[in-house]
Design a protein around this nucleic acid. Structure first.
Lengths: 294, 294
DNA sequence: CCGTCACGATCAGTTTATCTTATCGACATG
DNA sequence: CATGTCGATAAGATAAACTGATCGTGACGG
């Protein structure tokens, strides 16, 4: 009979590729884990692990089973959390993922408030790009992510927090006086600086300026908005700046111009696994985010 | 710590609403089951079952947890089956659901052949309407269903087996000679006989004859095609007959007329849970079904 | 009003599962 | 060839789970 314990041990093997370390991960001794894996192999009648000199590897079947096991364990974890579904929101551990184009600008304002209003919240923050956050959320390594929506994941539930305008940032004094608004279509001739591949902000900026020919795009994307803005300040080009970053990234060597109506925006919101029970947390957090932004 | 055993026992309670019978279902004694349920309630810190005089009922939380438990147990069962994924197809137990407008016409031809070619197949057939089959497949009570596609379930994988033409069946001699084909739009004035609500064939017929006003539809749907055809034979109206039923349902008091091009068809195919490992079975079965139809 | 029944809870004792510690054997590496 | 790493195995301890007997409560019938 397959047990959850066996599945847990198998996923530990899958993560560590090492019996000893997997055992430590599961807080048991190595023989205990070895035996459970053997039991699992016998009850499924398939070899799951290749014990080779030097290192272990999962067989094809082992990888597939480990993958399914991981899904099942996440479902069980969500079931366990469901019990405490009507506890007050924002209490206890919460693993929150945030994309890099939000975290540095929102956290300084949100964290003090969050700590003041919800002192019992044990927040663990992870900052990385959307695709990694999505994977980790699906896998159960995160409880909630804050990113630009939509994510296109039917297994997630989402909640819009607010809209964030895109502005054009250019070197101070480089614009003709009097042109107060910029038409996205008119940006074709400018030198647009962008983040490197993988940042959703890059894709959003490109879709705002869809008329740009690929040749005018800076091939060497920067890895942080801060770097991009320093380039802008020194006249290397222009960029699209999310409004929420304006406070922090804008110096007096840079000026901001709004787009013509309808102004392009990105929708910032929260997402969680449908099977998890984080709606209350998401709603409370979204409310707080709207507050600190105002 | 939640265990699969506890989840199994809970689903048994959910199905039987009775500790004793649930225990029998799980092949344990009642105290064993009672204790596991109590353990589960303690580890989730929620009351799952209301022990009332006379009968037991699940609490709201209990119902939700039982539902999740059932999903998890299905996933585990599929994981267990995955091990034997590359065994020969159509061997061992296979629970197959078939809709009523297919089963009586295809089974007489398919079953002998199936038995001849796959003597080791232990086939259990369930015949009921699509919606029930879909629920049972999702729940893990069936392995495969044969129905009119699409089913609109992203958690299912499907395989088209063949197309089945719709024909018009009317009382013999009731048509004007020489009109060899019927235009779906021209059926507005006829008296269309249909199966009762819930049969997908009824909905398909209605969509073929979309121009029909609701008033001309027979309000008292029959519960079997056979009954409908007897009504047709006696001049009570006409009906749409799937071509595969023609052999069996058509007598010399009934005549069939084909529709004008493009002839309306239904797509018959197989569906299984994405997480299960029934593609090989489905492919083999679809192949055999195409053979016996030819 | 009391005996009986149905049903879930509880208890005691046994069986089974799982764990730990100690050790083995195979294979590297210096 | 000594040493270290790693997974398997063995023996005994501990924990989990089960059975069979029994209890307590409420329903029902005479």
């Amino acid at each position: 009979m397959v047990t959850l314990r066996q599945l847990r041990y198998l996923t530990a093997i899958s993560e560590t590729r090492h019996f000893g370390r997997a055992a430590k991960l599961c807080h048991v001794t190595q023989p205990a884990l070895s035996m459970q894996i053997q039991d699992l192999e016998h009850s499924l009648d398939v070899q799951l692990v290749e014990r080779r000199r030097g290192s272990v590897a999962l067989t094809a079947a082992g990888a597939e089973i480990a993958d399914r096991a991981s899904t099942i364990l996440t479902a069980v974890a969500d079931l366990e959390n469901y019990a405490s579904r009507d506890r007050p929101a924002l209490v206890g551990p919460l693993r929150l993922g945030i994309i890099p184009s939000i975290a540095p600008y929102l956290l300084p304002r949100a964290l003090p408030e969050l700590h003041r209003l919800h002192p019992d919240l044990d927040l663990r923050i992870r900052e990385t790009q959307t695709s990694a956050l999505v994977d980790e959320l699906a896998h159960g390594d995160l409880d909630l992510i804050l990113a630009a929506l939509p994510l296109g994941r039917p297994d997630f539930e989402t909640l819009d927090a607010f809209q964030d305008r895109f502005l054009v940032a250019r070197q101070a004094g480089s614009g003709r006086p009097g042109d107060e608004r910029i038409d996205p279509a008119s940006m074709a001739s400018e030198h647009l600086l962008l983040l490197e591949e993988g940042h959703c902000l890059r894709d959003q900026a490109l879709s705002v300026c869809s008329s740009l020919s690929p040749g005018t795009i800076n091939a060497f994307g920067a890895s942080s908005l801060s770097t991009v803005m320093h380039l802008v300040a020194n006249g290397y080009g222009i960029t699209l700046l999310p409004e929420m970053a304006a406070d922090i990234e804008v110096t007096d060597r840079v000026e901001l111009v709004r787009f013509t109506e309808p102004e392009p925006v990105r929708t910032i919101g929260l997402a969680w696994r449908r099977s998890s029970t984080r709606r209350a947390d998401a709603q409370a957090l979204a409310h707080l985010l709207r507050e600190v932004r105002a």
